[in-house]
Design a protein around this nucleic acid. Structure first.
Lengths: 223, 223
DNA sequence: ATTTAATTGTTTGTATACAATAAGTCAATA
DNA sequence: TATTGACTTATTGTATACAAACAATTAAAT
């Protein structure tokens, strides 16, 4: 599904901004295909919650601070559960995958130049790889489905954009703590470490949204 | 979306059995519409996980015992969380909704004749109303999305089919316990009561699947 | 000048036609 | 007899055409 990727990427990178209406015809023209595959892509994105239905057509979803808080609460619940289950069910091969993901994460961080989109994409992707390795180790094949819905990629992507190199290294350390707990088969410790990890991510996002709001307020005053 | 309802109902009531392939053309002919809305309905059902993609087309999903175990584990996690949050955030109006849902539940149970599809549908619907009232009281608007995916309607529907009137009354009592905990603002008690409620549902389903399997094994021997 | 009616235009929803691809069948050969 | 290959059929994926619904704009009337 190519149209799907196209639209999703545009939303993630902020090219299609929240609230923007998505007209099928114009998207079709832009991609040189017919409306049919565009419609299917839009229905898909609707199911994922990235666009919301209007009376006529759809628009890019805007995530409020409450949305983000609530979504992160659920992500904490789900990923915490995944981590605790991983601590119970993990195999040696699972551990290898998590470790290698963490090594890649370390490399991606050290090779990262701030505000470089490409290296940022790498970091986001490798970070996801670590989290997915934990989900795989939990041996509950259905968790993935839910976590994928609770990891709102547009938000997560921006959150990494806002990390400085020290904070990135810090998150690597937390990864190692989680990995240790899973390796030592300590479900509760794994869950708590994961909770903490994701709550930090949430607060990071919320703090920056607050700042952005303030900038906008200043602009309003300036008019 | 009418085609969606049609296909979903057929799956829920077992008219389209697990593993059965869904051909667009034949569905379209059966409903006297074109393939276009059929396709959209199928994509929707795919996103919900009720049908699974084949190399070509889709087939009705078969839920294994492991699937059901894993899905119920997640449902326990999510609904337990919802109950605990409801105990914190519930308003008086939330309580009224839960109570009225429970009264309707009681009526539906007492008016139910075993194996009567219509009264069964009522029970399932009213039960859902109670659970949704709790979700609403939790004040996390995103929980609903996830719980709707973890409440696999075909399975839940059958599970109610297998309940006798005593078991139905018993589940009503558990509802009352959950409601009490929420009313008294006891999050942990609410969560635990909900956990127990859903785990009972899970075991009920698994027990009956076991029986069905045994019946099939007997048939095999009979050949 | 403001509100209502009507008409025009734009965009989505559905049907149909065509293209592409997977599956099934039959024949030929080892 | 089994297996491979060409060919036929069936089914999905995409494009286009048409119908329906909504929005917007203009004209008329109070």
């Amino acid at each position: 599904m190519d149209a799907y990727e196209y639209i999703k990427d545009a939303i993630i990178e902020g090219k299609f901004v929240p609230g923007m209406r998505l007209a099928e015809e114009s998207l079709a023209k832009k991609m040189n295909i017919s409306r049919t595959p565009i419609r299917e892509a839009i229905r898909q994105l609707e199911a994922e919650g990235l666009v919301i239905p209007l009376k006529r057509g759809v628009s890019v979803r805007h995530f409020t601070k409450d949305d983000i808080r609530q979504i992160y609460d659920l992500r904490t619940l789900l990923e915490g559960y995944a981590a605790s289950q991983a601590a119970i069910h993990r195999t040696e091969s699972d551990l290898l995958k998590m470790e290698s993901a963490n090594i890649l994460y370390e490399e991606a961080i050290s090779g990262h130049v701030e505000s470089n989109m490409e290296s940022l994409k790498d970091i986001v992707q490798v970070n996801q790889k670590f989290h997915e390795a934990i989900v795989a180790a939990s041996k509950n094949e259905h968790i993935h489905f839910h976590i994928s819905k609770v990891v709102v990629v547009p938000i997560v992507f921006r959150s990494f954009y806002w990390y400085n190199s020290f904070q990135l290294k810090q998150s690597l350390e937390v990864h190692k703590t989680i990995l240790d707990a899973i390796k030592n088969r300590e479900p509760e410790r794994a869950r708590i470490a994961m909770h903490e990890h994701i709550y930090q991510g949430r607060d990071h996002v919320l703090k920056h949204l607050e700042q952005i709001k303030n900038i906008h307020l200043l602009k309003e005053e300036g008019k």
